[in-house]
Design a protein around this nucleic acid. Sequence first.
DNA 1: CTGAAAGCGCTTACAG
DNA 2: CTGAAAGCGCTTACAG
Lengths: 348, 348
Amino acid sequence: MSAVGRPTSKDVAQEAGVSQSTVSLVLGGKWTGRVSPATARSVRSAAERLGYRPNLAARNLRLGTTRTVLLMVPTLTAPFFGPVYTGAARVAARHGFGVVVATWPDDAHGPAGEVCPGPPSYTPPDGPFASPDEAIDGVLASSMAVEALARFRETPAVMLDSGPSAPDGGIPTVDFGVAEGMRAIAEHLAGLGHRRIGHVAAAVDQWTFRARARALAAAVAAVPGGTLSRSMCAIDVTSAKNAAGRLLDRADRPTALVCDDDLIAAGAYKAARARGLDVPGDLSVTGFDDVLLATALEPELTTVRLPAEELGAQGMTALLDLLSGRRPAPRVLPGELVPRDSTAPPSG
Amino acid sequence: MSAVGRPTSKDVAQEAGVSQSTVSLVLGGKWTGRVSPATARSVRSAAERLGYRPNLAARNLRLGTTRTVLLMVPTLTAPFFGPVYTGAARVAARHGFGVVVATWPDDAHGPAGEVCPGPPSYTPPDGPFASPDEAIDGVLASSMAVEALARFRETPAVMLDSGPSAPDGGIPTVDFGVAEGMRAIAEHLAGLGHRRIGHVAAAVDQWTFRARARALAAAVAAVPGGTLSRSMCAIDVTSAKNAAGRLLDRADRPTALVCDDDLIAAGAYKAARARGLDVPGDLSVTGFDDVLLATALEPELTTVRLPAEELGAQGMTALLDLLSGRRPAPRVLPGELVPRDSTAPPSG
DNA sequence: CTGAAAGCGCTTACAG
DNA sequence: CTGAAAGCGCTTACAG
């Protein structure tokens, strides 16, 4: 073994008394019929003895491939994206790929000028140098604008939860059946007898929220006597509470609040209780996504389950297809209505 | 530019009419005083024209470093670890490092035999080959057993939220002041007049939970007349509800339930309401962590705020120190009691 | 069955 | 100020 640092295949070769190429053959699993079993055994044991781990940079350089895929998500702080990662990583692992996560830059940059004194200083070189996370074979981009993919012009990519792409040679997509989900909610509420619906909508410029708003509007319009009011908010409890409150303070108060997200529904609960309104007795509330929170709330939330882990898994499958030269067809994962205890017939 | 694939520095050199080494010097930002400004300009513009991006594998191989750090967390599905990543990534980015995330293997492997037909098949080579995520300079390991670090024997590592390490040359650590936090909760409850305390404890073999149990037991023992009962559960709402229920059904029902985690507290709320007990009128409940859920619940949860993002940031700072040859001192981030509406004096 | 050699695309002495 | 060359540690034809 060389004087310093990790052992290389050369060190293993020397230890085993064979050539470096033989080591590579054996440890790469391509030796059968080319290397004698006895030699193979001795190589393996030498590698073991030295604690040999191959240098991935060298292999990647030689192979021109990294067997690594980048998953881009808006944030890891929202409860939705953990499962997306989990699903993607599971499928990737089965095919010998790794997944690295990147969040939008603004997620990685907190308020300026805080935190931790005295780390080593490093000035990134000027010039068009890549950040470390770009040694990848492909990218899985979730819940983003198509334009944001521009920097990956040359990289095989699949878009997740971003809406259908251009029909002509567009990027492969995997989406949720958001419109069907919203329609199911509207029909559920209409079936209970609700007519005055309020939409507590996320003020986030993403396809998924535009699709939700569009679908809800259409579905309510299809209900005889159905009316829709809307209030926008950020995806946090306080903002949602305020937005829901605005709807509840109207003269023609809605009997049901359709929320764009489970967290927003939590805010709606608060707005209701602050006004002495019982959920679901005086007001029905629905969520969207079915994250953990939905069953932690009381009453448990009627919502639409979006299979986030499946989104990651299907997206990774599509990307692996793409990397193998196939053209995956667009996929849509159905959202499923999960009726729980936050919806009931309107009172009075 | 070569017939196929991305342009290399050689292509840029040819385009600019200079040598490859000059390109490397210029784009690496090490040219001042060694290359004429005019040449530098022409190199830059050639690189731009060709859309040149350096090959990271080659650079890593040459430099023997990847400027990438691995963050190991138990799961990304729990709301706690997103912020840890965010804090770590923010500090890393400031120093030109990237962060890749790995979860415990069991997080990446769902139920067998499901999902997605027909992806390209790949059999990982036998032998001691690394998975793609191991081309790293160091590791940040959160909330894990020290033993699990064995595979990183040779890799600089910092342990997060895993308890103090061996005093002699142990791995650097960043921990939360979990014991102080638990003590603050106990004192808060004692101050309100509570004596019969129930502990709804996470049945998870991690330092942080052992420390919570130990600290709570000691703090309750220090209260005159204080008694502690305990019930264990998994960290999910249903399991927590059952465990809390067992405590509430005892003859000497506790007047306060101390929960190891905010999600467990949500289960405790449910157990209370199922028995017609008002929180906090009939029963005080406390959580731990202060995740989003804490303020989504009603009443809002009295809990201990653990600065998860700061844990990631401080951990990364320590790791960068370590990579620079310094020995970071162990750090403890204080947990802060956040009194909200789920605690009150005991009734009767 | 085994080994010598080329080459992936960089960075960095070294020579001029 | 600029270029030719070595070498990081692999994989894979190719020759024997």
